[in-house]
Design a binder for these strands. Sequence first.
DNA 1: GCTGAAAATACTAATAC
DNA 2: GTATTAGTATTTTCAGC
Lengths: 159, 159
Amino acid sequence: MTFDRIDLKILDILQRDATVPVARIADKVGLSQTPCWKRIQKHEEAGVIRARVALLNPDALGLSLTAFVMVEAIDHTAEWRTEFLTVTETLEPVRDIYRLAGTHDFMLRVVVPDMPAFDAFYDTLTSSIRLRSVSSVFALEQVKACTALPLSGLFPSPN
Amino acid sequence: MTFDRIDLKILDILQRDATVPVARIADKVGLSQTPCWKRIQKHEEAGVIRARVALLNPDALGLSLTAFVMVEAIDHTAEWRTEFLTVTETLEPVRDIYRLAGTHDFMLRVVVPDMPAFDAFYDTLTSSIRLRSVSSVFALEQVKACTALPLSGLFPSPN
DNA sequence: GCTGAAAATACTAATAC
DNA sequence: GTATTAGTATTTTCAGC
């Protein structure tokens, strides 16, 4: 799949604000409405646009504690990994799961209301699966939150 | 600000899929269209709904390397912090900035196309501001990605 | 690939209940 | 809160260049 400058511009607008009407996007990228709409449609079908979602304010909802939990596997079998993912994917506070390079095997981004809730999560995690080590990092504040990808550094495909 | 079950349900629907029309949301939460639309409007004005955005697929755009960079401040003055935030907020690959509790002071989520790009970012960062220590963790794969907040564990406000 | 316009849908706001 | 209405905006499709 290739992207020209116009594609990147369209995607960049939408990943910042998905409420911008197609007519205005078309105007900004120098296209008329129909071809612009068709490109967006194509990107949606191809899965380049994964979803359109509303971003909520965690503090307003009392979800002000974010923790990053780094985990070492007890062994490196396929069975352990499968079980680990099955357990963590179904745990409510786990928002993201990253498989890591280096000494730690996985990192979880965990969102909970407060420390007692984190403690409860920690108990559930450690009693659900055996781990070699767990180390948690707590965020006091999220200074910047950005779901958009850094597209401006990308070169358009030469096709 | 208080949220009843209906508010939480509405927000949960929108944070998973913001394309669902108000009529269908109203139907799902057992409200008619007008009050449902007014609640959504209220949450948008109050900033509970921060934004509506499109989520893009990083791999499709050649942005497959995510790194978490943990930083220790060289000192704990207000000046250092201000400068650090000024520098990092303007660096393209930096998507999120967390202020941490513990030995490390900040963690950055960094998204780049590949290792050379990360190397370039690292050079820019370390030459822009003095740091006591930097340690990076690299993600091989993002197994789960979820921007939605875990609302199902929340109790509705008793009002 | 593009333009322009029509049709279908959804949103927004106001009404009376 | 509901139901209905109407006007506006947007999305989507359909012709033709």
